[in-house]
Every structure is written in structure tokens, then in C-alpha cells.
Design a protein around this nucleic acid. Structure first.
Length: 281
DNA sequence: GTCCATGTTCTTTA
DNA sequence: CTAAAGAACATGGA
């Protein structure tokens, strides 16, 4: 479930615990989560000290003293948590890094996530720019290269890195853009709104420590709070907070897509706005 | 049993 | 050849 705000929150909770700390024993309980396949991760990490923890797109990048690095991708259900060494090892725990006094454990039931050893390589390969420092003109240039629906284009990590199903739906609503709009047909004005909407949505989500719908927890085991502020995601049939029109849901590229038919019209220009922002609680 | 899920990548189709 | 659409991956919860 983790998109940029959730990954950022994991990095923020993990970094202060492990930076400058030394990894002791490494337990790899399931070796097919390691890439490249067959790489001896335990050997590479044992007795190494963590220099930094950062984020690139949805990747959690851990750099060791000596500048070798690896990244963890949480996939759909992955968690990277700090646990007491005495904690029971629950099902689907695939990797344990033993530090002095605590463990860092990677658990991922669906195993869409994993650990990628980079060595001296950068974590940038195949990644688009970071959305939080992407200029509108650059976003416009990138969107203009594809006829795909803007929602599909924004989910493409090579076009821009870090957005997923939740935040694309939320940002398109904030920008008043229909998800099926061909990416290359967006006006400069629309891309300007989209650029601001993406940044504002991500910043708010980070401030609220991400969204927990089902599986996501940060490194301290804490859930996010942004799901309570979603305007469209998982709100099909509920009134739009801006205009009270029921939010609609359809499937696009195998992903559920949520939008307000009044605020995000397919063709026509203007829209109605109702003064009331919220229905009673 | 059925459907659905915060992601990515491979395969198929146009 | 390229771009876009679909299927596949694996598990669990409603």
C-alpha cells in the first residue's frame, strides 16, 4: 500500500534508529525476496554500519559506511519495522537485521516487495523525477509524450516517481481533472493545477504520516492518519466534499479509480460549486 | 466459494 | 519497431 508519503514516513521513523548503528547478525528467512537472485545479502550486510536512510520514489534506500547501498521496496503489503529482539517472529517475516538492542524486520505476506542490492550503483535507474521538486513545465513536457489516460501516465514510475493509486486519484480531484483525460491533451493551465495539486496532496499526506487502509504501518508500528482526509479514494457513493455529488468509481488498467463527475468533468468546462463543504458527521 | 487490495513486470495486442 | 492494454504474481480479509 505504500506510496511516497508512507515510504517517507517509514524513512523518517527508521533513520533516527539505525543511522550510525552497526548491523550484527543477519537472518534471511526467505531468500527469494533478494535481488539480484542468489546474491548473498547476509554476507554483504553483516557487521556493516548504516550511514544514511533516504527515499527515492517508493524505494527505501539504505547506504552503508563505505558507500555501498541497497533498497527495500514494500510492494503492496510490505512492512519494515523496529522490533524488540524478544518479539515473536510472525508469519511472512523474510529478513531480520539484528542491531544492538533491537531488530529491523521486513515482513511482506504478498511478496510483491523485496530487497535490492545496489552496491555502488545509484537508486535512480528507471526512475522519473521526484514529484515534490518537479517543475510544471517539466511535468507538461513529460505528459505531452503520451496519449495514455493521465491517471495511467501518473502511475508510471518512469514518468514521475512515487505516486500510486491513492494519491493520483486525490491529486486529480484536487486539480479538477478527469482521470481518463489523454495526458497529451492537458493544457498548460491544467498541468499547472495538477502540479500544485500533486505537491499539496503529498505534503498534506506526509504531514499526516500517510494513509492506512489495511496493511501499512511505519517503522514504529504506527498507522497513518491521512485516510480520514481522502476526498475520493475509497469514497464511492459518498458525497464530494466540495460539491456533494456522489463520488464514482470505475476500473482503469485494473485499478479502482475514484472521481467526482461534477468537479472532474470529462469534457465540459465549468462546474457547480455548493457552499457546504461537509455533510454532518 | 467470490471479489478486492496502497505495486511492478512480463506478455499480448494493436 | 513502439505504445498501450491485460494478465500475472501471492496472500489474506470481507
Amino acid at each position: 500500500m505504500p506510496e511516497l508519503p508512507e515510504v517517507q514516513t517509514v524513512v523518517a521513523t527508521l533513520a533516527p534508529r539505525i543511522v550510525t548503528r552497526r548491523i550484527g547478525r543477519v537472518e534471511l528467512l526467505r531468500d527469494d525476496i533478494v535481488h539480484p537472485c542468489g546474491f548473498d545479502l547476509a554476507k554483504a550486510l553483516r557487521s556493516k554500519t548504516v550511514q544514511s536512510v533516504s527515499r527515492r520514489g517508493k524505494r527505501i534506500v539504505i547506504t552503508l559506511v563505505g558507500d555501498e547501498q541497497f533498497y527495500v521496496h514494500l510492494g503492496m503489503t510490505g512492512r519494515l519495522t523496529i522490533d524488540p529482539p524478544s518479539a515473536q517472529i510472525i508469519k511472512h517475516t523474510h529478513l531480520i537485521l539484528h542491531f544492538d538492542g533491537f531488530d529491523v524486520r521486513f515482513r511482506d505476506p504478498r511478496r510483491f516487495g523485496g530487497v535490492w542490492w545496489l552496491g555502488q550503483q545509484s537508486a535512480d535507474a528507471g526512475m522519473g523525477p521526484e514529484p515534490l521538486d518537479l517543475r510544471p513545465a517539466e511535468l507538461h513536457r513529460r505528459l505531452a509524450k503520451t496519449t495514455r489516460a493521465v491517471k495511467n501516465a501518473l502511475l508510471d514510475q518512469r514518468l514521475v516517481a512515487g505516486l500510486g493509486n491513492i494519491y493520483v486519484d486525490e491529486a486529480l480531484h484536487a486539480a479538477h481533472i478527469h482521470p481518463l483525460t489523454p495526458a497529451d491533451q492537458l493544457s498548460a493551465d491544467a498541468v499547472g493545477r495538477l502540479s500544485r495539486a500533486i505537491k499539496a496532496t503529498l505534503r498534506r499526506a506526509i504531514r499526516h504520516r500517510g494513509s492506512t487502509l489495511r496493511d501499512y504501518l511505519d517503522a514504529d508500528g504506527a498507522a497513518g492518519g491521512f485516510q480520514r482526509l481522502h476526498r475520493v479514494y475509497d469514497r464511492a457513493g459518498h458525497p464530494c466534499h466540495r460539491c456533494n455529488t456522489p463520488i464514482e468509481r470505475f476500473v482503469l488498467g485494473g485499478r479502482s479509480t475514484h472521481f467526482c463527475p461534477n468537479c472532474q468533468p470529462a469534457d465540459r468546462r465549468p462546474r457547480r460549486r455548493v457552499s457546504r463543504r461537509r455533510t454532518r458527521a
